[in-house]
Simulated assay, not measured.
Amino acid sequence: MAFPITSLLLFAIFLSIFLLITVPGVLVRLRANYNPKGLQLDPEDGVQPHTGPVTTSFFLMLSRVRRLEGWAGLMKGTVPTLLSYVVHSLFSAIFLDASLSSPPNHDIYNSPATTIWGTLLYCIFLPLVSLPPMIITYRSIVTPYQLPYFRPLHSLRVLLTPMERRKPWVLYLTPGLLAAELLHITYAVVGLRIIRHLLLPLLSHVDNSVPQHFSRSLTIFLAISLFSTAILCPLEVISTRLAVQRNHESAEHNSVAQEKAGDTKDFPEYSPDEDVIGLRNDTDPYLGFRDCARKIINEEGWRALYRGWWLTMFGVFATFA
């Protein structure tokens, strides 16, 4: 299948802008940062205060990452993000006849316009193919270690546990993660498309002589955007928390507990003296979708589910552009 040169150039330009905005991974670290309101228990059931960084603002996290890890730290996750985006875009272009020169066709909030069967295929494709790259991308962003760009197998020693490397399908069994992604994709691909078809006629039939029509349509648009953000943002936060949890088989730990670093001695750290973010205690992981939501609300407050909500709203806005 041949693509016009102009389409490829436009695709390359948009991809560069996309990576410049999203690759720094500030949003991933903001949502993954564990920041409980009070005390927590240590493995011996003793009470200890939380000592991790208290950073709940996107721009404060951006400043913190830049200060502790520099520009190199901001660019963590470049390679897996690039690969997953290219696969996503090529699938849309080849199987769903989406144009490479039309960036909205390659965003989860703006799935390619296709048939019902195409939409179903798209919804099935996204979680099955994009979930492992998402896990690798998120873990490569939150890891404190400097991973080589051109030695992926070497990097996987840090990003994946021995069991995950032996049995890659275990990534799909990460408790709650697939459910969170399915809910997110279903609403973003199907729900927003239905809402868009229902709302656009209201926005297109605007009578300049009757400005209240436009005011009513704008009010509906903002209400739906806020409602969609209220649904999608918590799902994105939960997916982030579950994706950075590791699966391993150990008799003395829960099967989803974060594995102790054992293959990291050859990897220098970006900031040995201070962690950029804190992660949940590896002896008390999230056990599923509902458990993750419940613990976030109980330990960090409901606002933790809406970190970076305005970025999610931008994605919703793009659906109606």
Rank of each mutant, 00 (worst) to 15 (best):
D207Q: 11
L82T: 07
L8S: 08
F91K: 02
G73Y: 00
L202T: 14
I224K: 00
D42M: 03
I94Q: 03
P272C: 07
K37L: 15
D263N: 14
F58Y: 04
H50S: 06
L62C: 07
D107I: 10
G46W: 06
L131A: 08
F289C: 09
L74G: 04
D42A: 05
L100K: 02
E164C: 04
V190Q: 00
L235D: 06
L200A: 08
F3C: 02
H253R: 11
M1D: 09
A32C: 05
A188Y: 05
T81D: 00
I21R: 12
R31S: 10
Y286G: 06
T119I: 08
V170W: 12
T119E: 01
G73E: 01
E249F: 15
P162T: 14
T22Q: 09
Q40H: 15
F59V: 07
L198T: 10
A12F: 10
V79T: 12
S111V: 15
I13C: 11
L131N: 11
R67K: 14
L222M: 05
K260I: 14
P272M: 06
T22Y: 09
R139L: 05
I297P: 01
N281K: 14
F314M: 12
V47Q: 09
W310T: 15
T119G: 00
H88Q: 09
R307F: 12
T56P: 02
L62F: 15
L30W: 08
A223W: 04
L120T: 14
E44N: 12
F317V: 13
I220E: 08
V158R: 03
S102Q: 09
L131Q: 14
C123K: 04
I5V: 15
L178F: 14
I135C: 01
T174G: 00
L96P: 00
E252M: 10
D207F: 14
W169V: 10
L311M: 08
P162F: 11
T119N: 03
R196F: 10
G118D: 03
K265C: 13
T240F: 08
V26H: 05
G278A: 15
Y109Q: 13
L60V: 04
A321N: 08
W309D: 01
L173C: 13
L131R: 07
T319F: 02
S255V: 13
L218R: 11
A179F: 13
C233Q: 10
F320D: 00
C123R: 02
Q40R: 15
E181Y: 13
R196S: 11
